[in-house]
Simulated assay, not measured.
Amino acid sequence: MHYMRIIAHFDLDSFFASVEVLNNPELKGRPVIVGGKERGVVAACNYEARKFGIHSAMPSKKALQLCPEGIFLKGNYGEYSRFSRWVTNIIAAKAPLFEKASVDEFYLDLTGMDKFFNPLQWTIELRQQIIQETGLPISFGLASNKMMAKMATNKAKPNGFLQIPHGKEQDFLAPLSVGEIPGVGGQTEEILKSMGLYTIHDLFKAGAEVLEERLGKHGPDLWLKSQGIHHREVSPYHEAKSISSETTYGDYATDPTFIRAELVRLTEKICYELRQDEKVTGCIAVKIRYPDFETTSRQTTIPFTSADDEIIPVVKALFQKLYKKGTPIRLLGVRLSELTNDAVQTNL
């Protein structure tokens, strides 16, 4: 069956600076720049700093000249990582398929979910959950492919959202400048402008052959992009610091004895992997997806262990708290995280 693709792109606004403001509310409303004051470059800055013309990758010295009253911070990368994992876990618990493109950027493939939910409403609710739980501002775009979703997010910022309906891609793109296409760098933009091509509509009118003459094989690809055509898939995300196993049941699982046996099987499988890697776990999660794609998960922390007989009862208890009794199950998953190979941890 062929579905219309539905892709969401989430981007945490001014992520590093937002974490700094969240952890120190006195910084709110002030220009915050993450990066060295005298040397180095700007790693991130908030919207208050951008009003002075400051942007990422700008030499810190220049940023200081533009905004002498700016708050320059070295950056707390442990905190950025913690908040990034927090948002990742919220998305992982809800989304059928997602890609973590960077520490602050995610693509979600919601194709086929429109049979069960309104994808825009679902995405709005996920955004609200992220904001409420973490306190971080986050924007999203919803569109027919990754490129269009990212461009929608860029227009939705700061802290907003935008949907580009199917079939309206060219209407959205036409008036935008050529430099707004992801992947078009300064050099390419200058070449296009020297050809008299300023807007994406200009690009489209120029045609693939003209663009190929000046830009080589990049030209025809750019012409396709000018029509909102982009085929790159959402690549499934794999958390490097966790081990998980899940199974999708085509006919849905309903028999309680079978479901209990599956929980044990999945848990034994990942406990074996854990011991092969000579690791122990401190966090266990169970995930259930129902036939209507509603996905729910629950996790708990435990004393560090790799023993089946300590982990299996916790998995069963989590499942009992989570499961809507009698409801068929589409997918069942178990995940072990907070892994460490520090043997001392097992005795704490």
Rank of each mutant, 00 (worst) to 15 (best):
G207I: 13
V280K: 01
V210K: 15
V334H: 03
Y290K: 04
G326N: 04
K324W: 11
V34C: 03
R39V: 11
I124L: 12
T257G: 10
I131H: 04
P313A: 06
V103N: 00
I243H: 04
L110N: 02
S337Y: 02
L224V: 10
E239R: 12
W122S: 05
L126W: 02
D13P: 07
S139C: 10
R50F: 07
E273A: 08
I131S: 06
T295D: 03
N118K: 12
P165R: 10
A95L: 05
T123H: 07
I131M: 14
K150H: 08
P256A: 14
Y272F: 13
F117C: 06
G183H: 12
N76L: 06
E26V: 15
Y323L: 05
K287T: 08
S18M: 02
V178N: 07
L222P: 05
K287V: 05
A149E: 02
D11I: 03
Q187P: 09
H231F: 14
A206C: 13
K74R: 14
L12K: 09
A63P: 03
R30A: 09
M58S: 07
L336E: 06
G75N: 06
G160V: 15
L203I: 13
G40D: 06
T340P: 02
G160F: 10
R265P: 01
Q121P: 00
E212K: 15
L97Q: 04
Q121E: 13
F319Q: 07
L348K: 13
V19P: 00
E20S: 00
A8Y: 03
S245R: 12
Q299R: 08
K321M: 04
Y77R: 13
G183Y: 10
F116L: 10
F72K: 02
G141Y: 07
R335T: 13
M113L: 15
I164Q: 03
V19H: 01
D221P: 00
G135V: 11
L339W: 03
K28E: 13
V264P: 00
Y47F: 13
A253D: 02
V210P: 02
P158I: 11
I329C: 10
L22N: 03
T296I: 15
Y252R: 10
S235P: 00
S177W: 13
L142A: 07
G179C: 06
S139Y: 06
K324Y: 11
E233L: 11
K225Q: 15
K150V: 10
T88M: 08
P291I: 05
F52T: 09
S297M: 03
L192P: 08
M147W: 08
K279Y: 04
V286K: 00
N154K: 15
